[in-house]
Amino acid sequence: MQTFRIIQPTPALKPFIRYYWILQDSTSGIVSQRTLPTGCISLVFHRGERLKVTNRNELQPHSFICGQESGYSDVTSTGDIEMIVVVFQPHAAKIFFRMPVTLLRDKNVAVADIENPALRDLAHRVEDSASHDTSIELIEDYFYKCLMSGTPYHLPRLTDVIRHINNFSQTNIKTLSDIACLSEKQFSRIFSENIGTTPKDFIRIVRLQRTLSVLQHNPGIGFAQLSYECGYTDQSHMIKEFKLFSGYTPKEYIARYSPVSDYFTF
């Protein structure tokens, strides 16, 4: 049996946290899933058995930060699943971890390996808490305490940049640096330190997520129209990018999965 819940953060945390999700699955047998880059950094707590990342041949840590990803991963269950996951706004994770989040790219970094006693204590308390609701309360209390030490100076300009990327299927670094009122060199450095990947790669990931969203809501769309709506130069460009990030062409992907955009849906 599987249950899945999306929980919205309190209004004060909404500028920093997109949502929380909770998954429980006691399905007998092995469950496999392909995950694609979402454009967001996550904090993951396993209260059940851990997942195996098969293409890296490694078990996920009990509690870990999942950095920005540049490609797909295949994960497989190893028993009963019980996960609580925090999905940050694209530009907000650095506020809570106090490090350049480029260091997390393409990594699952165990909370136990981070020099942050308060975060390690949170992980233990979430794993041992009596209920999911209590776990969310513990997590939100931790985030509130983090915010008491202030937010980064560049947060408002990065908020404007992310909003522009979300609203326009085509953009470029010059436009984004102008929105941020920074030189292109400054902008690229600050963006990467706060978002965890380069502006160019982030735009490509959001374009992938936009493609999934259009396929989700308009499954009958032609690929030529799809590539135009999502900001690709042409259909062949879309197919190449989609396969790079997912391992499949769009046609192959929708034959195997129901397209859902984690970035634009929740």
Rank of each mutant, 00 (worst) to 15 (best):
T3K: 05
I6L: 15
I7F: 14
Q8C: 07
A12N: 07
L13W: 01
Y19L: 03
W21V: 01
L23W: 02
S26K: 01
S28G: 12
G29W: 09
I30Q: 13
S32P: 05
L36F: 10
G39H: 05
F45Y: 07
F45M: 13
H46N: 15
E49D: 15
R50Y: 07
R50F: 06
K52M: 04
P61D: 03
H62Q: 13
S63I: 00
G67C: 11
D74F: 12
V75Y: 02
S77H: 06
S77K: 03
T78N: 05
E82W: 10
E82Y: 13
I84Q: 01
V85P: 05
H91E: 14
K94Y: 08
L103D: 09
L104R: 02
R105A: 12
R105L: 10
D106Q: 05
D113E: 09
D113K: 02
E115V: 04
E115I: 00
A118M: 10
L119D: 01
A123V: 02
R125I: 00
V126F: 00
V126E: 00
A130I: 13
S131L: 07
H132C: 02
H132V: 02
D133K: 03
D133W: 10
S135D: 12
S135M: 06
E137V: 12
L138D: 00
I139F: 04
F143N: 00
F143D: 00
S149H: 12
Y153I: 14
H154D: 09
L155M: 11
P156R: 08
P156F: 06
L158Q: 09
T159H: 11
D160W: 04
D160T: 12
I162Q: 01
I162K: 04
R163N: 11
H164N: 10
H164A: 10
L176H: 00
I179G: 00
K185T: 08
Q186W: 05
F187A: 02
F187I: 02
F187W: 02
S188C: 13
R189T: 13
I190H: 09
F191I: 01
S192W: 04
N194G: 08
I195K: 05
T197D: 09
I205T: 14
V206M: 10
L208Q: 03
L212K: 06
L212T: 08
L212N: 09
V214D: 07
L215H: 03
H217T: 15
P219F: 12
G220Q: 11
I221K: 07
I221N: 07
I221Y: 12
I221L: 13
S227G: 11
E229Q: 08
G231L: 09
Y232Q: 11
Y232H: 05
T233E: 08
Q235E: 12
S236F: 11
F242P: 03
L244T: 10
S246N: 08
S246L: 09
Y248G: 06
Y248E: 05
P250C: 08
A255L: 10
R256E: 13
S258W: 06
P259K: 11
V260Q: 03
S261P: 14
S261T: 14
Y263G: 10
F264L: 10
